[in-house]
């Protein structure tokens, strides 16, 4: 498992991409679901710099992308995709044209389709409007 923010020996960027004949299945799946070219990312960090929710993420958006490139499936247990609100600030700013929100959506869906949920029904605050409930259930439940 890769180190998370704050760990003493971050080795996320120390790992080399292994170029093999076939793409790992996990990477191919994320690429297919997101429709994005994951290898376009060159780790400039602009997405993370402008992300309004990065403070609440265990991995920054660019790190999430790196973990996917490395086919590190532990990224599926990351909190980051659940915190991402699809505000698309990163998507319009990425100099390589990668829509990271789509990668986050793909990771959420891979978990949701395994039966995970990002919404605890019992903890839904009272009085939230329909527009918020529909949005949250569409994004955070299978």
């Amino acid at each position: 498992m890769a180190e998370r923010i704050g760990d003493s020996t971050p080795r996320l960027t120390g790992q080399a991409l292994r170029i093999t004949a076939g793409e790992p299945e996990f990477v191919a799946k994320v690429e297919e679901l997101s429709g994005e070219n994951l290898y376009a990312c060159y780790q400039c960090g602009k997405c993370a710099a402008g992300c309004l929710f990065a403070d609440h993420m265990d991995f920054l958006p660019n790190q999430v992308l790196r973990l996917v490139q490395l086919a590190d499936e532990s990224v599926l247990t990351s909190r980051a995709p659940w915190v991402c609100a699809s505000c698309l600030a990163c998507a319009v700013r990425c100099p390589k044209g990668v829509d990271i929100a789509k990668v986050m959506e793909a990771l959420r869906l891979l978990s949701l389709r395994q039966g995970e949920t990002g919404l605890r029904w019992a903890e839904i605050p009272p009085g939230v409007p329909q527009i918020a409930l529909v949005g949250a259930t569409r994004k955070l439940t299978p």
Binding site: L52, H56, A85, G118, L119, G135
Partner: peptide, 14 residues
């Protein structure tokens, strides 16, 4: 900037 949108349901603190 984003207001947090539907996170008002799942994570109002954000």
């Amino acid at each position: 900037e984003c207001c947090g949108a539907y996170q008002t349901v799942s994570d109002p603190e954000i």
